[in-house]
Design a protein around this nucleic acid. Structure first.
Lengths: 332, 332
DNA sequence: TCGGCCCGGATTAACGATAAACCGAGAAGG
DNA sequence: CCTTCTCGGTTTATCGTTAATCCGGGCCGA
């Protein structure tokens, strides 16, 4: 492997001069620079980033750690990447399994220290587990779980989004609104927040929410949602509105309804959450709560860059506003 | 920052002993090990991976480089991750923009050298550009473009898949099959291969493919597909079958057809390609060519691990077989 | 009883780069 | 004419690990 000292010898200069030419950290005379570049070219030299990182103490790299590359996380990742690059850093994405053990492992200090900063999408971890995550590397948390105060945190307006969605259904005349994937029991997190919003919308409309309409969806997959809705239809459970806690769940519901001949929005109106790219194209177009991806991404990156720049102000906990995007799955 | 030498001092041993305890590379006596571990614990020491990498010459990390985190690439990434982990290495995902400049940059030797191996999904690069990519790091290419022979390469049976899809449509009675997103002109790559399969199926059935049914879709987005199909319908272009070069494109088509009141599969039968997770749930269920994600992932990882293990056999160019998954968008 | 070996551990020497200090020579300034 | 800069470059000292070697002593077989 050709090293910087080979280049230095070839060009008849010191290693520092080669380094300076390559990084541009100090001025180097024109003729010398040319000799160095020629030597680099002829030897095919490429800097060893690992060595640079060790010496410089920076990696110029930010990690985004997500539970999967799908759906919501894919959308977020695609938006975060250019922002990080704009800050002159490189983005890499790592995946945790959704389970806490592996998530904890991804958070092992050795790995985190490889990055100048980390955006961590918290899926499986509880607040007290996060408490033990070391904080010497700047970290910004994303996601709907409760987190300890010593982290910056970006979350969605979950309760508000669910309320918007449900209120929209009620306004359009739905009276029995399924809360698909929601849960009153989950101690804290997306599913309980969205349950709360669902309930709140009912109260605000002077209606009583029927808790029997709260239907769990294991792992929030389309498959599980499909199964759950199919079972409800077979059991004859009456409903004329459906709030899905996310669009992935909504897709399963749409398929189940279509197969049973239940028309959307004629018989059942439906609203999802996340406004995935594909949701607009799933007939009849899924009305969905848009999480403001660009704002989520921009906020997360801004917070992280503040920390990486050495900012040590109080930790921010930002709730990003959401808005409803109306499509064909609810009546005009 | 607490280093290994701090631990060594605290435990009253040499740094090498600490290193050996931590890596397990050499046997260390029970009492000594305990003292070391106690010191590690009490000081909160964590190994510096950057330093380890520099010294050891390995990073135990594999990079998967993809054009975006969406769709096909998300599916592949989710399957590759566990396989790489199973090999005792860590996976990170990097994104290139689809454009060649940025893709070339991601391929800069310095970055590639940070990894023990690289899985590169080739989107924007031409064969002669790839020719200039240095090969000192083991690389396996994924994707449908033509690639130079000095790389291992995993691709799909594109022509065969397109043929399968089109033949299925013809068999089910379709006579004017749109080739949405295909192109006879693209010198080489996914869109021309799939065009070839479309044409081949017609020949095999003794039919003449009407080239006017070949409709380009810029960037292969759902939006562009929606626009293209809408325009065709408005122009009164007759067709009763639709082969979409991928499911993302198919989604756009489905939405356009639904909005214009064209029934699937009654008026137009439709087949996609990629069999994305959501395709099953988009009413009426998208018949799609399944690329055998698990095989793609397993093959790519196997080839890469062979190279990383020092294998220097001839470079393999594997074409993964595909199969058709029938759903409601084509007749039974 | 003695040479050879194994074991647990310490010493030495990098891995490949950069920060910081240093230095000679010409230019600028008083 | 001497001091003080600035410029262009070199020297020195690590960054935090681990591979390779070395070493003392107990144990073994002959």
């Amino acid at each position: 492997m050709v090293t910087m000292s080979d280049v230095a010898r070839e060009a008849g200069v010191s290693m520092m001069t080669v380094s300076n030419v390559l990084t541009g950290n100090k001025r180097v005379g024109e003729p010398t620079r040319d000799r160095v570049l020629a030597a680099v070219e002829s030897l095919g030299y490429e800097v060893n980033l690992t060595a640079r990182h060790l010496r410089a103490g920076r990696t110029d790299t930010v990690a985004l750690i997500v539970p999967s590359f799908h759906d919501y996380f894919g959308e977020v990742a695609d938006r975060i990447a250019p922002l990080v690059e704009a800050g002159g850093r490189h983005l890499v994405v790592e995946r945790t399994s959704a389970d806490a053990r592996s998530e904890m492992e991804s958070l092992s200090m050795p790995r985190l220290r490889m990055y100048d900063g980390v955006l961590l999408s918290v899926a499986g971890l509880h607040s007290d587990e996060l408490d033990r995550v070391p904080t010497s590397t700047p970290i910004v948390l994303l996601g709907e779980r409760e987190v300890p105060p010593q982290f910056d945190h970006v979350r969605l307006a979950n309760v508000e989004g669910a309320r918007l969605a449900t209120a929209h259904l009620l306004e359009r005349g739905a009276r029995r609104v399924l809360a698909l994937g929601a849960s009153a029991e989950a101690s804290v997190g997306m599913e309980s927040d969205r349950h709360a919003g669902w309930a709140e919308a009912h109260r605000a409309a002077g209606l009583v929410a029927d808790e029997r309409l709260v239907t769990p969806v294991p792992d929030f997959t389309s498959e599980a949602a499909y199964d759950a809705v199919t079972r409800l239809l077979d059991d004859g459970m009456p409903f004329d509105g459906l709030f899905a806690v996310n669009d992935t769940v909504a897709f399963g519901a749409v398929a189940a309804l279509a197969e049973r001949g239940v028309r959307v929005p004629h018989d059942v109106q439906l609203v999802g959450f996340d406004n995935l790219g594909v949701s607009r194209f799933v007939p009849p177009g899924i009305t969905s709560v848009d999480p403001g991806y660009d704002v989520v991404a921009a906020t997360a990156v801004r917070l992280l860059e503040q920390r990486m720049a050495g900012g040590d102000g109080p930790h921010e906990h930002v709730t990003v506003p959401v808005h409803l995007v109306e499509r064909g799955s609810t009546r005009a």
